[in-house]
Simulated assay, not measured.
Amino acid sequence: MSDAVTEKSAAAVATGREPRWLDPEQQRTWRSFLLGTTLLLDRIDEDLRREHGLSAVEYEILVRLSEAGGTLRMAQLAAALAHSRSRVTHTVKRMENAGLVVREESPEDGRGVDCRLTDAGQDTLRRAAPDHVETVRQSLVDLVDHADLMALGRVMDAVCDQLICAHPEREFRR
């Protein structure tokens, strides 16, 4: 028995509950999900970097700003991306140096900081979006049957519906 399983068994004894272990088919599906998600996100990031000099996070920031009418509070942006404020601040600073966004004092209360999409940022997003969607198509959408893609959507909607209540600011499905 592995150390990890022994530790889990010890936890089961401590709580009085036996874990509901995954059967072999569920374990294979879980591992395929983890590996597939990692490989897909890596491919998206690689393609955006190679073609447009953007990381996937930078692209997502441009998308979120565009969908929000061009401006978001930094705190909202960090929450929406599920990243720490310091990580988003660092990324936005890099993007600001590249002329894609600007940070400015919020006119709402003067305490917060807004991140605003620049014309250059909007142009970069317009150029990157067709290549990004092609990567998504080649790496996911076009690989599976339409019915399987719709099933994946339903599965991920169920996951989102269950977990989004703890972080409603992250919701961006349409």
Rank of each mutant, 00 (worst) to 15 (best):
M1T: 14
S2W: 05
D3C: 06
A4Q: 06
A4N: 13
A4W: 05
A4L: 12
V5H: 04
E7I: 14
E7A: 09
K8G: 13
S9D: 13
A11S: 12
A11Y: 11
A11G: 07
A11W: 15
A12M: 05
V13I: 12
V13H: 04
T15R: 14
T15S: 08
E18A: 11
R20C: 06
R20W: 11
W21M: 08
L22A: 05
L22I: 00
Q27F: 15
W30Y: 12
S32L: 10
S32A: 13
F33L: 10
G36H: 04
G36R: 03
T38Y: 15
T38I: 13
D42Q: 10
R43G: 08
E46C: 13
L48E: 11
L48V: 09
R49N: 14
H52W: 09
G53I: 10
L54F: 03
A56G: 14
A56K: 15
V57T: 15
E60L: 15
E60V: 03
I61E: 01
I61L: 05
I61P: 00
L62F: 01
V63A: 12
V63W: 04
R64C: 06
L65Q: 04
A68I: 04
G69T: 12
G69V: 14
G69D: 12
G70Y: 00
G70H: 01
L72V: 02
L72H: 02
R73F: 05
A75P: 09
A75Y: 12
L77K: 00
A80Y: 01
L81R: 06
L81V: 05
T91K: 03
T91F: 02
K93Y: 10
E96D: 13
E96N: 04
E96Y: 02
V102L: 07
R103F: 04
E104N: 06
E104A: 14
E105L: 09
P107Q: 10
P107L: 06
E108S: 07
R111M: 07
G112C: 06
V113K: 05
D114H: 05
C115D: 01
L117E: 00
T118P: 01
T118K: 01
A120Q: 15
G121S: 05
Q122N: 08
L125H: 02
P130N: 00
D131R: 09
H132R: 09
H132T: 03
T135F: 01
L140F: 07
L140N: 02
V141F: 08
L143P: 00
L143Y: 01
H146L: 11
H146C: 11
M150C: 03
V155A: 13
V155W: 09
V155H: 11
A158L: 10
A158R: 10
V159Y: 15
C160S: 14
Q162S: 07
L163D: 15
C165K: 15
P168D: 11
P168N: 09
E169K: 04
E169D: 10
E171Y: 08
E171L: 07
F172W: 11
